[in-house]
Simulated assay, not measured.
Amino acid sequence: MSEITAPTPRTGTLWGISLGPGDPGLITRAAWAALQRRDTVWVYPVRSGKTPSYALDIVQRAELPPPETHTPLLFPMTHDGEKLARAWLKAAQTVLPWLQAGRDVLFLVEGDASTYATFGHLARTVRGLDDTVPLQVVAGVNSFTAACADLGEPFSEQDDTVAIVPAAYGVRAVDRLLPDFDTLVLMKIKPLIDELLDWLEARDLLAGAHFVERVGALDERRLSGPALLALRGSKVSYLSLLIVKNPHRVRGERIKGCLKKTPEPTA
C-alpha cells in the first residue's frame, strides 16, 4: 500500500498594492478589491518609530478597515547602504513566515509600487531568502501625473520629452538635462529646495515651474511661477516635487531630422 503524503502548502504571494499619491479616490478598482480581502496580512512602510504611515493613512481615509493582522515595516530615511540593507532584511524576515505559511501579504504603497517605491527593495530581499515566493504588483497613479491633473497642466503632449529625476543627483545634473527635455519632474526635492529656486531664477524657468507638496492629501500645497520664491528658507515635506516646463525647447525642432530616411548606399 502506497504511503499517502500531505499536499505541499501553497506559498503566499507578496503583493505591492499601489494606493495613488494621497487622494483615496485614486485607489484603483484592482487595489480596492485586494484590500477588501480579510484573509491577508497588511504591511506598510514607516520612516521612523514616531512617524505614522502615509500609506496606511490613505486607506484609513478611504474607510477601508485593516485585516486582523497588520504591522508597520521600518524603512529609515538614510543613504547609508548598510543601515538600509539591515532594515530591508528585517522587513523581509518579518513577512516571510506569513508567506511560507500560505498567507498573502499586501504591502501598501503610496503612489505606484514600481516608481521610486520601497516595495522593490522588500521584494528583492524576500526573493533572496526564498525564491519561490510569487510577486504581484497592482499599478497605481503616480504623484507627478496626479499633480499635473490638479494643476491643469499637461504632463506631456505630442512629441514632448520628459525626464523624471531624483533631485538628490544635484542641480548640476539637472541642469545638464535641460536642453534635451520639455518637462523635468524633480522628485525628493526637500534637501535642495533653495538651490533649485536659485537655478529656476538663473535659468528663467520660474514661469513654467510648479511645486506640489503631498498631492491628494488633505494638506496638499501648490505654488506656481514666481510664488515659488516664498519657499526659500522654509521646510518642505519629503513628499514634494517640482514640475518644470522648459520654455527654451521649440516644438518641431526637438525631433528635427528624426523622420528623414537614411540614404541608400551607393554602389
Rank of each mutant, 00 (worst) to 15 (best):
residue 53 S to A: 06
residue 84 L to R: 13
residue 241 L to N: 06
residue 237 S to D: 15
residue 142 N to H: 12
residue 180 D to Y: 14
residue 184 L to V: 06
residue 105 V to I: 08
residue 18 S to K: 00
residue 50 K to Y: 07
residue 130 D to W: 02
residue 33 A to G: 11
residue 218 L to G: 03
residue 15 W to M: 07
residue 31 A to L: 09
residue 163 A to V: 09
residue 164 I to W: 03
residue 168 A to P: 00
residue 262 T to D: 00
residue 126 V to G: 02
residue 151 L to V: 05
residue 222 R to T: 09
residue 155 F to L: 14
residue 242 L to Y: 01
residue 189 I to H: 03
residue 87 A to W: 10
residue 116 Y to R: 12
residue 209 A to M: 09
residue 13 T to D: 09
residue 57 D to S: 13
residue 27 I to L: 04
residue 127 R to Y: 00
residue 264 E to K: 15
residue 20 G to P: 14
residue 157 E to C: 06
residue 237 S to P: 05
residue 12 G to A: 13
residue 95 V to R: 12
residue 109 V to M: 00
residue 52 P to L: 11
residue 176 R to S: 15
residue 27 I to F: 06
residue 30 A to R: 15
residue 98 W to M: 05
residue 20 G to H: 11
residue 234 S to N: 07
residue 45 P to M: 10
residue 153 E to S: 08
residue 1 M to K: 04
residue 100 Q to I: 01
residue 199 W to M: 15
residue 68 E to P: 10
residue 54 Y to M: 13
residue 153 E to Q: 13
residue 88 W to V: 12
residue 159 D to Y: 02
residue 258 C to F: 14
residue 187 M to N: 06
residue 123 A to C: 05
residue 4 I to H: 13
residue 123 A to Q: 06
residue 191 P to R: 11
residue 172 R to W: 05
residue 266 T to Q: 13
residue 43 V to P: 08
residue 87 A to C: 11
residue 4 I to V: 14
residue 14 L to D: 03
residue 48 S to E: 15
residue 235 K to S: 14
residue 179 P to V: 02
residue 101 A to V: 04
residue 15 W to L: 07
residue 173 A to H: 03
residue 219 D to N: 15
residue 62 A to H: 03
residue 149 A to Q: 05
residue 196 L to F: 08
residue 71 T to Y: 07
residue 72 P to Q: 10
residue 214 R to F: 02
residue 58 I to P: 00
residue 177 L to Y: 00
residue 79 H to Q: 08
residue 27 I to M: 08
residue 195 E to N: 13
residue 148 C to G: 05
residue 218 L to C: 00
residue 234 S to G: 03
residue 263 P to K: 12
residue 44 Y to A: 02
residue 143 S to N: 11
residue 192 L to T: 00
residue 94 T to Q: 07
residue 227 A to M: 05
residue 255 I to K: 01
residue 143 S to R: 09
residue 110 E to T: 11
residue 242 L to I: 03
residue 127 R to F: 02
residue 196 L to W: 10
residue 95 V to L: 14
residue 99 L to W: 09
residue 128 G to C: 00
residue 105 V to D: 11
residue 45 P to L: 07
residue 5 T to V: 13
residue 178 L to E: 15
residue 102 G to L: 07
residue 170 G to C: 13
residue 155 F to Y: 11
residue 30 A to I: 10
residue 34 A to P: 02
residue 176 R to C: 11
residue 195 E to T: 03
residue 77 M to G: 01
residue 91 A to H: 11
residue 85 A to W: 10
residue 58 I to F: 06
residue 171 V to Q: 08
residue 106 L to D: 12
residue 256 K to N: 07
residue 141 V to A: 12
residue 112 D to P: 01
residue 196 L to A: 08
residue 16 G to W: 06
residue 122 L to Y: 11
residue 262 T to W: 07
residue 118 T to E: 09
residue 26 L to N: 04
residue 78 T to N: 05
residue 147 A to M: 13
residue 93 Q to P: 08
residue 162 V to C: 09
residue 217 A to S: 13
residue 25 G to Y: 02
residue 28 T to I: 09
residue 64 L to N: 00
residue 135 L to P: 03
residue 39 D to P: 13
residue 5 T to E: 11
residue 2 S to A: 08
residue 223 L to M: 10
residue 177 L to V: 08
residue 10 R to F: 04
residue 153 E to Y: 04
residue 190 K to M: 09
residue 98 W to A: 15
residue 132 T to Q: 14
